[in-house]
Design a protein around this nucleic acid. Structure first.
Length: 273
DNA sequence: GGAGATGTTTCAAG
DNA sequence: GCTTGAAACATCTC
């Protein structure tokens, strides 16, 4: 579900808890979102600390608590964060609930599919845990440059460009619909091998990645609205969806391991041109 | 009942 | 060691 802009949207859902201390922690330690997480340490470490800040990079989130405690959140495919007044009774898939008594709020992580992930780290490093610092620059960053994009496309030269756009090592925050939107705008066939792209096409991928990210942030990040009319997003899951540019039918097929939607008249393989 | 879902990890093969 | 592709993960909805 959540790509870069939606991750920002959900991160902000915990804002009502800023400045308040964690008074109670309820979690389902045996569930998959806590794989590789020391839940005992989380319990002991986080209790009594104050929520100070929430940050996002790509699809990753981290919440900074007082005294060097950090909570990492990944929403997976279907996860969400929200806030409810106390007292709050957790539902079946509410894997983590933080009560903040002085704010009168419960902060909740819910994930029906269990593809999400919670992490806990204790470090005095003000830049955050190692895994957080290791996340490559996302498309909002000034370090996300044309050269960076070109180098990554060349490194993954044998893979379909759709698969490369989904790789969080090169395009943190880009997910399935954003990748389709970028390729549709750039008029590139999703099955094109990244190494077969022209210099002009590589530049187009850089520019459209930034543009789609900004467009998504301006709508989804604030109110979870859909992107504007005229985006592929509006039609890509509809049966018999029509390309807003060509007026012809869109195609759906699995490319790079994910269902991919594109406009055949607009996006062709280079060798077919 | 079966397929598919806005994602990541892991593993095998080249 | 690096790249690529496919399977696995858990649950719900259509």
């Amino acid at each position: 579900m959540p790509e870069l802009a939606e991750v920002v949207y959900y991160k902000n859902k915990w804002e009502p808890g800023l400045g308040a201390a964690v008074t109670r922690i309820r979690l389902q330690a045996d569930k998959r979102p806590f794989r590789k997480c020391d839940t005992d340490a989380l319990h002991k470490g986080l209790k009594g600390t104050e929520l100070q800040e929430g940050l996002t990079r790509g699809k990753q989130m981290v919440f900074r608590f007082s005294s060097g405690h950090w909570l990492g959140v990944h929403l997976g495919m279907a996860g969400k964060l929200f806030c409810e007044p106390l007292p709050y009774a957790p539902a079946k898939h509410d894997h983590l609930v933080l009560d903040l008594k002085e704010a009168g709020k419960a902060l909740i992580f819910r994930d029906m599919r269990h593809f999400g992930r919670i992490r806990y780290d204790a470090t005095e490093d003000a830049s955050g845990p190692d895994w957080w610092q290791a996340i490559p620059p996302d498309p909002r960053s000034e370090d996300f440059t044309k050269d960076h994009v070109k180098a990554f496309l060349e490194r993954r030269s044998g893979a379909p460009v759709k698969a490369v756009l989904l790789d969080q090592e090169g395009f943190p925050g880009i997910g399935n619909w954003m990748a389709d939107e970028i390729l549709w705008r750039a008029r590139i066939h999703p099955a094109e091998r990244a190494g077969d792209l022209t210099a002009r096409q590589k530049t187009a991928i850089f520019k459209e990645t930034v543009a789609v990210t900004e467009g998504a942030l301006s709508t989804i990040a604030h109110h979870n609205e859909d992107p504007p009319e005229g985006w592929l997003f509006q039609v890509r899951w509809k049966d018999g969806g029509i390309c807003p540019k060509t007026g012809k039918e869109l195609v759906r097929e699995e490319i790079g391991g994910r269902t991919t939607c594109w406009s055949p008249g607009r996006q062709q393989l280079n060798k077919e041109k």
